[in-house]
Design a protein around this nucleic acid. Structure first.
Length: 428
RNA sequence: GUGAGCGUAGCUCAGCCGGUUAGAGCACUGGUCUGUGGAACCAGGGGUCGUGGGUUCAAGUCCCAUCGCUCACCCCA
């Protein structure tokens, strides 16, 4: 039998894996949408695939997404290469440029949500197709926007009911700063090159900063031994001031964070502010989401200089965190009325009545005639408020028998009376 | 790509030292109960025991291979 691709999930209410239940996803998306709309951001949906170049250039040639070939690439009829989006930011910047949003009042603040694709092997909290909520503030390079983005992100988590959060804030500096830092790291680490893990030896050339968060024990031992200075010590005056301003704004807002000098982002386009929000119990990957500033991204895509800051929230990881913290998620709504046909002829009568009452009243029905007892049990399982019986007796009198499940009260009503009953504030 | 653990009903699992016709609970359908409350009892449907090969009089059980799943590494959400 064919199965879903490993690392992808069917998301529906009864799904066995708790976090991947549709009501949980809806709760997360709805909450995020309320927070972000409430903050004046506007929803945008970009296609889930773009020309490959958008992500190649946007994400950076030394990023793992490109280097390790984690993008799903497809070929269009004309031979153009397309890619399923491995992250949303580059596509949003592309859209900003394509639609001339630079003439709008700046900053332009956008958000989106949807599936993201990366060719990775599945494990807990990591999937080939996962979902992100994404927020971007474009067109203005002000640390106030960085602080606001962090505050909004934290607000989303808190509104959802999460408590065990930690914001790790750092700065990756400006490109010049990073060049100086990488140079410093190469100088310090080169003498130990042969003792480094193979991965890290390669990184020594391409991106020495990545060595810093290597999980290899020998690498870490070397790092500890060398007492390397953190990136933050290499910030130029501008980046330094910017970082301090972000911190000051966060202090002013009362948003708790911890400065983490070792924060390194996986995507090449980040400059200055970089942060991650972590949660205690998500499995090996504890990041609930991350964000940063990417002032150079637009130019990498061949556009004008457009500063920007934004974040991505991993929906699956938030779902796992909600489960771990035991946060109750609103269930699917129950029907108000359950119509129970008691014989064959009543089936169409029930459906016709349901159609008349819908959509004002949420009506479900039994599609197979059953004994009143069975019908009652089914209505209870569905969580209905009322049961309407339609059978021989009702047909003769032109009524339906309506029973209120909680009180047990029951009366025979004509269809018109039924309509007016549900006119009322709660449906009686 | 690498490593480890696990594959028996839709789900959770039991199945001893290899031994007759492969089991339980949940879920589903029906009956007890022919027009009234989630129960209980009874019955029923549902299985290529992941797949292929080997050992054996005999394999769900032992051996080999293979596939799948999960977790972890790398890295990220």
């Amino acid at each position: 039998m064919l199965k879903a691709v490993p690392g992808t999930n069917d998301i529906f209410a009864q799904a066995k894996e708790y976090p991947f239940q549709e009501p949980v996803f809806r709760y997360i998306l709805k909450t995020a949408e309320e927070v972000l709309r409430g903050a004046g951001a506007q929803m945008i949906h970009t296609p889930i695939f773009e020309y490959l170049e958008v992500f190649q250039k946007g994400v950076g040639l030394t990023s793992d997404i490109v280097v390790k070939k984690e993008m799903y690439v497809l070929e269009d009829r004309g031979g153009r290469l397309l890619a399923l989006r491995p992250e949303p930011t580059a596509a949003i910047v592309r859209a900003y440029n394509e639609h001339g949003m630079k003439v709008w009042p700046q900053p332009v603040r956008l958000f989106t949500w949807g599936p993201i694709f990366r060719g990775e092997r599945q494990q807990k909290g990591r999937y080939k197709q996962f979902h992100q909520i994404d927020y971007e503030a474009l067109g203005l390079a002000d640390p106030l926007l960085d602080a606001e983005a962090i505050a909004l992100m934290v607000r989303i988590y808190k509104t959802l009911g999460l408590k065990q959060l930690e914001v790790k804030l750092g700065s990756v500096g400006d490109p010049e700063d990073r060049t100086r830092y990488n140079q410093y790291l190469r100088e310090q680490l080169s003498p130990f090159a042969d003792r480094l893990s193979p991965d890290s030896q390669a990184r020594l050339e391409t991106n020495p900063m990545r060595i810093l968060d290597s999980k290899s024990e020998t690498d870490q031992a070397i790092l500890v031994e060398l007492k390397l200075k953190p990136m933050l010590d290499f910030l130029g005056p501008a980046a330094q001031a910017f970082h301090q301003q972000v911190c000051a704004y966060l202090d002013w807002l009362g948003v708790p964070y911890r400065v983490d000098p070792s924060i390194v982002r996986g995507l090449d386009y980040y400059v200055r502010t970089a942060w991650e929000v972590h949660h205690a119990r998500i499995g090996a990957k504890s990041a609930l989401g991350g964000g940063g500033r990417y002032d150079g991204l637009s130019e990498m895509l061949g556009g004008p200089r457009v500063p920007g800051v934004g974040f991505g929230i991993g929906v699956e990881r938030v779902a796992i965190a909600l489960k771990e913290e035991g946060v109750a998620v609103p269930p699917d709504p129950s029907p108000i009325l359950y119509l129970a046909p008691l014989d064959e002829a009543a089936k169409i009568e029930a459906l016709a009545l349901a159609e008349q009452l819908r959509p004002k009243v949420s009506v479900e029905m039994g599609y197979t005639p059953k004994s009143p007892r069975k019908a009652l049990e089914e209505a209870l399982k569905k969580g209905a408020k009322y049961v309407g019986f339609l059978g021989e007796g009702e047909r003769a009198k032109g009524v339906i028998t309506l029973k209120h499940l909680e009180s047990g009260e029951q009366k025979e009503l004509e269809p018109l009376q039924l309509h007016s009953l549900f006119e009322g504030p709660l449906g009686g």
